[in-house]
Amino acid sequence: MGAEGGAGVNAFEQALDWLGQPGRWSWTAPAGIPYRTLEHLGFSALSLVIAAALAVPPALVLAHYRRGAFLASSAVNIGRAIPSFGLIILFWYLASRWEVDTSFWPLLLALVALALPPLFTNTYAGVVSLAPEAVDAARGIGHTEGQIMLRIELPLALPVILAGARVAFLQLVATVAIGAIVNDGGGLGRFIVDGFAQGAGGYGEILAGGLAVIVLALVCEGVFALLERFAVPRGLTLSRRATLSTRPV
């Protein structure tokens, strides 16, 4: 028990020493936490944007025409079943065989694949949860199908879509750290991997890197909570609630 406690104290001391090293808070050097944080966020944000561009439009169209329910439910199961690390290794292996840059594409493709299911499922669910009366009213005043999707269904489903984006982004933040095992960048996960490579002398770097990933995830969770609250106009939120309340039980 005493040895374990001593090891814990030693790790905290190592972490403090590591945090105080020169260049540790640099925005331009790879050894800096801000530099790796921006790299971490860059990978996560780029993957989310690409996944949203691939998942939201087809989900919106399928939900509008009330088709693809099986595809939406399958996306949920696939999203739960895909092992993040296994997907990264698979793309890394394929990139190595095809002589493609392994420092960028394997991790990016794995992240996009992981973000697709929650974005597709939430977009589909957000649209089909709307009462048909809202769509019928839009058709009655002359809106085209495209206008209904973009001006009625998409804005009203936005809170649910943002909830899916939050789930996807937090998963991406966690997976980028894992991706440092096969990626020369890897964001904040680089510190964890480098710490393990040092053995007992790297416990402080592992601890500091792990805490940095946790703090980043909590900050991102808070940012998305604010987006869900303020990105959707209050009138649309109230309209959506009223629409949902009119649906037959």
Rank of each mutant, 00 (worst) to 15 (best):
E4G: 02
G5C: 14
Q14S: 09
D17L: 14
D17Q: 14
Q21S: 15
G23R: 09
G23N: 11
R36C: 06
L38P: 00
A51K: 01
A52Y: 03
A53Y: 01
A55M: 06
V61M: 15
L62D: 04
F70K: 11
L71G: 05
A72I: 05
I78G: 00
R80K: 01
F85I: 13
I89D: 02
Y93L: 12
W98E: 14
T102F: 00
W105Q: 08
L107H: 02
L108G: 04
A110F: 06
A110Q: 04
A113S: 13
L114Q: 09
A115N: 07
P118N: 10
P118G: 09
T121N: 10
T123C: 11
V127K: 01
D136N: 13
I141W: 08
G142Y: 07
H143K: 08
T144S: 15
G146Q: 11
Q147A: 12
L150W: 15
A157Q: 04
A157G: 05
A165S: 11
V167P: 08
V167Y: 10
F169I: 04
L170T: 07
V173F: 11
A174R: 14
V176P: 04
A177C: 06
I178F: 13
I181K: 14
D184Y: 10
G185R: 08
V193N: 11
A200T: 10
G202H: 02
Y203I: 06
L207K: 05
G209Q: 01
L218A: 11
F230N: 01
A231E: 07
V232P: 02
P233T: 09
R234P: 00
L236T: 07
T237D: 13
S239L: 13
R241H: 10
R241V: 05
R241P: 00
